[in-house]
Amino acid sequence: MDTFLQLVLNGLMLGGLFAIISVGLTLIFGIIRLVNFAHGELLMAGMYLTWLGTTKLGLHPYVLAPPLVLVLFVIGVAIQRFILQPLLEARDAHVQIFATVGLSTALINLALLLFGADLYATPAAHVRDPIMLGPFRIIVGQLVMFGAGIAVVTGLHVFMERSFLGRAIRATAQHRAAAQLMGVDVNRIYMVTFGIGAGCVGLAAALVAPVYPTSPTVGTYFVLTAFVVVVLGGMGSLHGAFIGALLIGLVDSLSGFYIAPDLKEVVIFGLFILILLLRPTGLFGLGRGSE
């Protein structure tokens, strides 16, 4: 029983990690309707920046979170403005997706060029210390990620519901042309949305770097799971993504123990297909009919 509860705990904590990485992706997916294949590489870039900040400037990784959110926001806005927006009028909308694939490959190779294939470990600074809860253990960093995941999802929800900009973003997602007719500057909305999505990755990078070693391909390890989380939760649904992430974390942890570590992906993707068959819009999707 103790083992089972520890597994559940591990699963929820792993879910927190997946959630914090997936939030930005689901935002971009839901609003811009863009599958951003370079998402993992933005995480990778953020993790390298965290490593640089901790080792060269001697700062705690968490202190780097606010500046990283800003830097990634700017990078996100730039990607939307200079790479994706010019392609918006392309004959086929899929060109944008291919552009993100190209960006992903370019960023991985840029990292190889700058840092080599070495693995970099961000100093832990007590982030990896365990906390004992009776017979159970949690790592400080995992708890922080879990809390940050809830905070980001809640914060973004309030922003989307209450603020003027949030309403404009939702309007654009619901019907781009209608929003444009109502005077919404769609291109600006897209830039801001991509920026916020990338900013979320900046936060994720600062939290993930001390618990996970950084390498040029680190993004590819997470991005596939992030896609599953996004689709599972219902494309664009923020709390859906959070619940989806916890679910994937739990399945990962339990199947890794009770079935086999090399079969857990089979279980995860099997479940993924099953849910899509039963509920094509995901667990918390808006249902058919939304754009």
């Binding site: 591990n10 997470f222 942890s253 857990k264």
Partner: peptide, 19 residues
Amino acid sequence: LPYPANIVDMSSLILRLQA
């Protein structure tokens, strides 16, 4: 216990070794 090299969490595998 085989596992994929791009694994992101080995806590379950370690619990099995402990068990």
